[in-house]
Design a protein around this nucleic acid. Structure first.
Lengths: 166, 166
DNA sequence: GAAATCTCCATGCAGTTGCATGTATATTCA
DNA sequence: TGAATATACATGCAACTGCATGGAGATTTC
């Protein structure tokens, strides 16, 4: 997916960047874009397949559990989770429904503001996070750590970070 | 999303890579992983928002149209498209339904094998691909080309490529 | 301090995806 | 050749997502 329209001739290359305020992307930019989309989908696909193969839910569930586990009381408001994991509000709302139905979290009242609520991780939720990491951690190692040097992984992270900034 | 379980102490760092055949990922690998997922989602989100804002369909549609447009007769079998754009079979089948309903492609019999079919791009499909590129191309330029040098974009593409290989 | 506005979370609906399976045709092999 | 297997594509169903909107409660404004 994410194929690109490549420039046919070589003439376009002659344009200077300064005179190209928001025109055709360079071949390097186009390539990076295609690779980015492909790599992300391939790796997410492989890692989620491993999790599913081990009988675990998807990474969304893991992300929420990890955020909750990280904070002292194991409690966050949906808003706070939303900020951290970058889900849509309506999406998180329903994910929490499912997680609550599975006994991984519980919703409790937020003292002093009845619009809000606190989502608290249960023991079962903590246990699931731990056992998922047993698959997820090694998967990251094999799919990323083992394919790049530490330095390269650092460069990659830095380049990717720049794409989302500004 | 794609938060990670970080190692707490510093002791784990002492392990040598050779003695760590499929264990904990390094911090660099974990970071690269998180950034990869975040960057992809952020950029796809922004670019698709621009397309939608201009009244266009999603990138999946674009990808299919571009593949068809690229080949001499403007015809491919669903299988061939699938390989190129990396969609699931059932997903592509229904995407083609929608595109056909919109008059962007048409399905015609495959001579000599009645299991297969040929998907042919229509003039309307070609026109849509062209006009989408008017938004898509500049978006790639702004979101990627303008944020990295040519050399950096090349490095990024190379690093990403290595993640999907083997 | 009442009305307007804003914030937080939920939900109906339509569109999309994943999964399993179905149908038709072609190929392989005993 | 005929049965078993494989390939190409479609589809029913359940899960998930995006979008718009709703309702309850807090905050602002005048």
């Amino acid at each position: 997916m994410m194929q690109l329209h490549k420039k046919q001739g070589g003439f376009a290359q002659v344009q200077e960047v300064e005179k190209n305020p928001s025109q055709e992307p360079s071949d390097a930019a186009s390539d990076a874009w295609v690779r980015l989309v492909r790599a992300e989908r391939a790796l997410v696909g492989r890692i989620e397949a491993e999790l599913k193969g081990a009988g675990f839910p998807t990474l969304s569930w893991y992300d929420v559990l990890l955020e909750l586990k990280r904070v002292p009381e194991g409690r966050l408001t949906p808003r706070e989770i939303e900020e951290k994991v970058l889900f849509e509000q309506y999406n998180l709302s329903r994910l929490l429904d499912r997680m609550e139905a599975d006994g991984l979290v519980r919703r409790i009242p937020y003292p002093g503001d009845r619009r809000r609520q606190l989502v608290e991780i249960t023991d079962r939720g903590r246990a699931l996070q731990r056992s998922m990491w047993g698959i997820y951690g090694p998967a990251i190692h094999r799919h990323i750590g083992a394919k790049l040097t530490e330095k390269e992984a650092g460069q990659l992270a830095a380049l990717l970070l720049r794409l989302t900034q500004e």
